[in-house]
Amino acid sequence: KAFERVEKINAELFTMTYGALVTQLLKDNKDNCDAVNKALDAIGYKMGMKIVDEFLATTAMGSCRTFAETAEVIAKVGFKMFLGVSATANVAESLQAYSLVLEENPLNAFVELPDKYRSELWFSNVLCGVVRGALEMVMFRVECTFVKCMLRGDDATEIRVTLLEILNENFASGDDD
């Protein structure tokens, strides 16, 4: 329902703008895909840190008590609200990791990757950054990586999220005072 409360935009416009950014990054990094993946993750990270405010304000959702709970919330509410599609969350038995599977990825629309990028570029890597940045704002430091991408010929889009540490909300005051 939260999706109905946010103002929506033409998804094509977002997708084209994102595509233009990826093209520019490839140019700036002289086709070094590894550097482009990193740059997209960094851009997403800063977006995620800001997106979380809007998410919390719109959904008025209480905080997740456990890391595993964040999986469903991101998959069903977060992705739906911002990207317009929901994901399926598969939580690992350890409860310390999960994967998010998207059957369709709007960022991929109108995109066809030239062969030279296919095995190294994670075109939608900004999503990993967004998830990482958003989770860090709610005190879960995670590692987030792409596992599958339809542009590479995989059957779905899959992102792996692994918990690294739970950050303490009561920050030390820094000095000895």
Binding site: K8, A39, M47, E54, G84, P106
Partner: peptide, 24 residues
């Protein structure tokens, strides 16, 4: 697609271009 995503993306795009050694 939420409208705020596009604005956030644009902001980050500007920040990237302005701070990237390729253009700055």
């Amino acid at each position: 697609m939420a409208d705020s995503c596009l604005e956030l993306l644009h902001n980050q795009m500007v920040e990237y271009v302005v701070t990237s050694p390729a253009h700055n």
